[in-house]
Write a protein that binds this DNA or RNA. Sequence first.
DNA 1: GATGAATGAGGATTCATTCAT
DNA 2: TATGAATGAATCCTCATTCAT
Lengths: 215, 215, 215, 215
Amino acid sequence: MPDKTEKPGKQQAADERPVRRQARGERRIAQLLEAAASVFCTTGYTAASTNAIAREAGVSPGTLYQFFPNKEAIAIELGSRLMHRMRETYGEALAPLDPATPLEEAVTAAVDRFIDFNCRNPVFFALMHGPDIPGRMTEEHDALHATLITRVETLLTPFVPGMPTAEVNRVAQVCVGIYKAGLELVLAHEGAEREAYVQELKNVLVRYLGALVVD
Amino acid sequence: MPDKTEKPGKQQAADERPVRRQARGERRIAQLLEAAASVFCTTGYTAASTNAIAREAGVSPGTLYQFFPNKEAIAIELGSRLMHRMRETYGEALAPLDPATPLEEAVTAAVDRFIDFNCRNPVFFALMHGPDIPGRMTEEHDALHATLITRVETLLTPFVPGMPTAEVNRVAQVCVGIYKAGLELVLAHEGAEREAYVQELKNVLVRYLGALVVD
Amino acid sequence: MPDKTEKPGKQQAADERPVRRQARGERRIAQLLEAAASVFCTTGYTAASTNAIAREAGVSPGTLYQFFPNKEAIAIELGSRLMHRMRETYGEALAPLDPATPLEEAVTAAVDRFIDFNCRNPVFFALMHGPDIPGRMTEEHDALHATLITRVETLLTPFVPGMPTAEVNRVAQVCVGIYKAGLELVLAHEGAEREAYVQELKNVLVRYLGALVVD
Amino acid sequence: MPDKTEKPGKQQAADERPVRRQARGERRIAQLLEAAASVFCTTGYTAASTNAIAREAGVSPGTLYQFFPNKEAIAIELGSRLMHRMRETYGEALAPLDPATPLEEAVTAAVDRFIDFNCRNPVFFALMHGPDIPGRMTEEHDALHATLITRVETLLTPFVPGMPTAEVNRVAQVCVGIYKAGLELVLAHEGAEREAYVQELKNVLVRYLGALVVD
DNA sequence: GATGAATGAGGATTCATTCAT
DNA sequence: TATGAATGAATCCTCATTCAT
């Protein structure tokens, strides 16, 4: 299990004693996660095999298991790092927006950012896609999904002041669902066609939410 | 080697001789497809094993392969039969609607029917859920998806008379995407909550399409 | 899982319909059990691997798993067949003996038979030897052990008429323990030395039980 | 590569220079052996993994291999230390007994001590239990076993003055076998039942040996 | 000495598919 | 047709051991 508290470099200087020489390991972990990302993208999460990931990373299966107890742990860590990176990159998108911001603008900004991030990190899509069967979600999935939902709820709140929590949650679920569906279409196309789909996605969301806001 | 030319249904009409020994075979096929449906629902398409399907059907693996060349063929046939049944059950929904029908009414009717059908035939969802990876679609998937798209295009056309084909297709893709996402949410809930999600799904579609129609 | 109810040959003629052509399978099972016996003897139960058994049997791992769900099942079936064979071969030893039979004679006969059987079927020893740890018994082990205990209790009863059940059981446990220990020594030697150990084993039992009987 | 010549204890006496840096090492070794004992008890010798031992000891696998060349070496050292401790604790039991001591008393004393020791040091049992297979003994096993046999021979001698060495050895083997079998039963029970088994064990030995002595 | 990373063969088990009967 | 046996590569995962630091 990767030790989050131990970023190599600066902190090492400060924490003279506690944990030593995880440099190599930390690199391996990054390597493995990268490999996993690649494999998840190529074959999908379900079909991805730990051996394939290890092979892609150029290490033996045993090495993989030194850092992750199983495939799901890899996905969880990968998802968590992706969320981190997302927060770092587009952190402002989280700040409760000025309620005065026109909805369209807010949606456009959010979608552009999410889409951009997803295009740069195609694994994200693979991770969002749960193992086929509706009720049953893997832990990994759940975590990622829950985080996404929370984010969207946060973005939503200023626009729908009086709405009961349960309903906000439902709307968020719907938005995330729409987003996932849109993303699939976006990723399946390129160039102008891709752009067109991005626009449609925005349209769907703006019109859906628009009615809620005005109401 | 299994005989692909023995596909039941359509081809039979073309083939002058009806061949009788298919009576038993037809029953076997139905049996197998039913079993497959059950297994797909329980474990998802990817995780479903042909052996499990055969077991569920109460036949030997060899028998299964006498009728289907591989797992995908089962899914394809299953999907095709589902579409058939759907057409039979809700056939009118396909007939180009009177353009005077209010959009909301049309959408409500269509969604109610689709949802109803999906709840009665939960395999449908499992089949729509492709093996994870965006670009790469399996044949099975493709077939089902294409049929769906065509249907939606047909439904759409009367409402957007002047729209270029490419755009109609895109809108259909978006609608189907939205529908899938909505369906997932609907199936994941029960009772009143499920109803609420059905309503949201309708809202999303009506508002999205409403703008296109008025325009 | 092997179908016990289906001994090939005579029964096949009688049961015209029910189960057909397990001939090959039945042979495979026998083959696999033989291979398992060999491997268990060579490496011990714990260290024996299913792959090794399959290899020894000259079949692929998959084939093994067509007949047995796991290693333990093999051991169980093997043990059960051994007990069967034992009963068939030395069945009379089970019949409650004439209480008039001198103890020494009874013990001698029983030990001779058991030892003979064990020398002819060395797996028996491997199967009796449980996975190291006192409390924890595997199912396989338990079954074999329980059967043994029961047999010994049966043999014992006529000699100790008034003894409470719990005590009979305890004595049986002790006898079986002694027997196992003796067997280990017997198997570890050859020729005259082996004979000497057999004699010691008899001595131990006769003297131990003699005191109980006389008492 | 681990240094075999650094075995603590005996060799130290021969080696004039006591070497100080062994203070830490000695503690490590004790730590590791304790951990090994715990793991052996929990999982049995065969199933015990060196990594598990290291983990239990709170050190890295590498450290373990700095002190022991392999798993067996751990067992050997553990066994040897156990024998030491046994000798220290119950040393007198070794001293050739006064031939006038009644056999029963001697056996009772010996069994009580051995059993007591084994209950306090449950590893002992795990170590006595060899990897299943009769002829093939591991070195570790052999050492422990040989020591035990020798002890019993020593205890035995005064009671059977004229007996040829080979026979004494055989009787010792039998006694140890009986003891092991009895111990297994004793450890498998608790409370009064355990006591009852201890008594049976004594009975078996007294009666077996009694006949030899009188003779 | 100590650490933790690395190895790679081997473990049990599954599965789509083919074959003999 | 139908059966069940057979395959063998692939799955996840473990373990004794070695190596670089």
